[in-house]
Design a protein around this nucleic acid. Structure first.
Lengths: 215, 215
DNA sequence: GTCTATATATTGATAGAC
DNA sequence: GTCTATCAATATATAGAC
């Protein structure tokens, strides 16, 4: 066996072990997202997560130090993804089209990742006890940046005057509502998934953006 | 002592006892609203509520049979108040003015009763395990009624075409956002309470209603 | 790495004295 | 009506065998 072969074998072995570990962690995190987003942090037991993930409680605790460890890992991941759609707004694009695309992205996330939306919403409603001040400062920085962009558009007369911060709040609120208040919406509206989200998208564009078109 | 006097004394005594009981229950419910809205149902302990209410745990359980009993009492109260602002929309009023007043009422509630808003939001996000199907049916009925009213305004050309159901969803989402996501909003916006809500009201009117004005 | 068994802590609810 | 003491049930986390 050559040195090269040995190196490859060792690297492969290490890599595979790591990959398996990551797979297990992925299974746990996916199960945890199910349970946390449905029952909240306090309402979730390690047993429930372990059962959902198809393993025993001590086995789960072999991969994560504690229930809080699992939760914070999940939350940090969500926080990182949180601002991405906002960051994608481009100053040099067409204002209405940029905002329209932003609303679409956020609504799409509500549809495709409602568990993440609910997890985040619950954490905020509870006063964000697990979110570091630094994370909020990062969010604030991105918001301030995009607020300046939108204000610039308004100043240039490319959209009508609006408070950009509250426009962003309104986009967050309306799009996330479809994930977070799903139960209530389903009790009121009988549309199937496709129809509901298509109608929501059109309605939100009309409501939030039609009034912004410079005349 | 005459019969009349005895009767009065007895009635007074009974009445006073009931009033005191109601006062105690009120103190407990207020404390419970504090704790439930901050920590959720599972995250709340009877001890925390009792301590906030300034009494012992067994004393609290003298007035309410269980933790769930306290919670459901609060939730039912909130459910009853929930649809009132919507019900107040009048078909024979000016459409934009009726909707404007509705937005104001909902925003005002977010400001003055944020705990109730958060309690309700958490219950919905968790899948509304304590809300009876009948309650949702009541809500649905009121929504359908007002959807017909708004649709009628649109059909008559008094407002521009919009999906009334999603307009109502948007009003709920945006107004409640200021109560439910308070922590996040405060991390982004430094305005004091008065300024924040005044700017929010103006922004929501512009965003949600300006586009609806018939032209 | 995964299991069973268990130590330790918390909590909902009750018993019973005053 | 209010208290102290306590029971019974859960749940987090660990010990230790395999």
């Amino acid at each position: 066996m050559t040195v090269t072969e040995t190196t490859i074998a060792r690297a492969t072995k290490t890599r595979r072990k790591t990959r398996i570990q990551r797979e297990k962690e992925g299974i746990i995190l996916n199960a945890a997202l199910d349970v946390f987003s449905a029952y909240g942090f306090a309402g979730t037991t390690i047993d429930k997560i372990a059962a959902t993930a198809g393993m025993s409680k001590p086995n789960l605790l072999y991969y994560f130090a504690s229930k809080e460890d699992v939760y914070v890992t999940l939350l940090d991941k969500q926080l990182a993804d949180w601002v991405v759609p906002l960051e994608q707004i481009r100053e040099d694009g067409d204002p209405i089209e940029e905002l329209r695309a932003y609303v679409r992205r956020k609504l799409e996330l509500s549809r495709q990742r409602p568990r993440e939306s609910r997890l985040y919403a619950m954490e905020i409603i509870h006063g964000a006890p697990h979110i570091k001040t630094a994370s909020f400062k990062d969010l604030r920085k991105v918001v301030e940046e995009k607020v300046a962009v939108i204000q610039g558009w308004a100043d240039a007369g490319r959209i009508t005057a609006i408070n950009p911060t509250h426009l962003i709040f309104a986009i967050w609120a309306t799009t996330q509502h479809y994930a977070d208040f799903d139960v209530q919406i389903r009790a009121i509206d009988d549309s199937d998934d496709d129809e509901l989200f298509e109608t929501a998208a059109k309605s939100l564009e009309t409501l939030l953006l039609d009034g912004l078109k410079a005349r």
